[in-house]
Simulated scan of single mutants.
Amino acid sequence: MSTDVTSAPSITGYESLNDRVFVMVSSTASVVDATSPSRFHYFEQDGVIWGSYDGDTVVIGRFSGYRESDTVTINFVHLGINGATTSGPATSVISTAADGTLLLTENFEGPNGTPEVSVCREVRA
């Protein structure tokens, strides 16, 4: 696969997630620290998704997966500030907020197997 991701195409009506940054605004898994929320940096090429995240309860995290239309399916792993490693699958649906920023509504299982939902909002410069 080519490493040039600067011209990732739009997929089924949604702009590419390539080089976009999102912050977590809500989660059923934990209280989100509004002053230092988890921050996600996405890359995309030809429907392949990958990236990294940190902040709030996460020291460092990585994810990779794929995109089909408005759905992103990934596997993630991160090291928490408590020293524990968490990993698993997640599925996000892309939508557009009233202000034009993208939202990612993610469904995943918490460490105890409980279904959880988080929402991340695109950060624009």
Rank of each mutant, 00 (worst) to 15 (best):
S38E: 13
G13S: 01
L103N: 08
G88N: 04
A8L: 04
S87A: 15
N107R: 06
V5Y: 14
Y14S: 03
E44P: 02
S27E: 08
Y42T: 06
Y53E: 01
S92Q: 00
M1L: 15
G88A: 06
E106L: 03
F40P: 04
V5L: 15
V123T: 09
Q45T: 09
A84G: 15
V117L: 01
D70K: 12
N112H: 03
T114L: 05
A29R: 05
F22V: 00
R67Q: 05
F63L: 09
V32A: 10
E44M: 00
F108E: 05
T86S: 14
Y53A: 07
N112Y: 03
Y66W: 06
A8T: 13
Y66K: 12
S30W: 13
L102A: 00
G47D: 09
V48C: 07
E116S: 03
W50H: 05
T85W: 13
T105P: 07
G113P: 01
R39I: 06
N112F: 11
S92F: 02
V117I: 07
R39D: 07
S92P: 01
I60P: 11
H78F: 14
D33F: 07
T71H: 10
S7P: 05
S52Q: 12
F43I: 11
T85Q: 13
S2G: 12
A84C: 09
G61D: 07
I60E: 15
A97D: 15
P89Q: 10
S64F: 11
T35L: 08
V21L: 04
H41S: 14
M24N: 12
N75W: 14
T101Y: 04
N107D: 10
S118L: 08
L103G: 00
P9S: 01
G80L: 09
L17H: 05
D33K: 00
F108S: 01
E15H: 04
S16M: 07
V123A: 08
D19E: 13
T86L: 06
D46F: 08
A125V: 12
R124A: 10
D4R: 12
A8W: 00
G110R: 02
V31Y: 12
S30M: 11
N18W: 00
S38M: 13
G55K: 01
R124H: 09
V58C: 05
E106S: 15
L102G: 03
T28H: 01
L17V: 04
I81P: 11
Y42V: 03
F40A: 11
E15T: 09
V23K: 02
N75G: 10
T35F: 00
G110Y: 08
T105R: 13
F63Y: 08
P115F: 03
R121W: 06
D19L: 14
V21A: 13
E116D: 00
V23H: 03
F76H: 06
P89K: 01
M24Q: 14
N18T: 11
V117S: 01
I49A: 02
Y66P: 02
D70S: 07
A84Y: 12
G47Q: 08
S27V: 02
P111R: 10
E106C: 04
V59R: 15
F43G: 13
T3R: 15
H78D: 15
I74E: 05
W50N: 12
H78T: 11
T28K: 06
V93L: 04
D54Y: 09
R67C: 02
R124V: 13
C120W: 14
R124N: 12
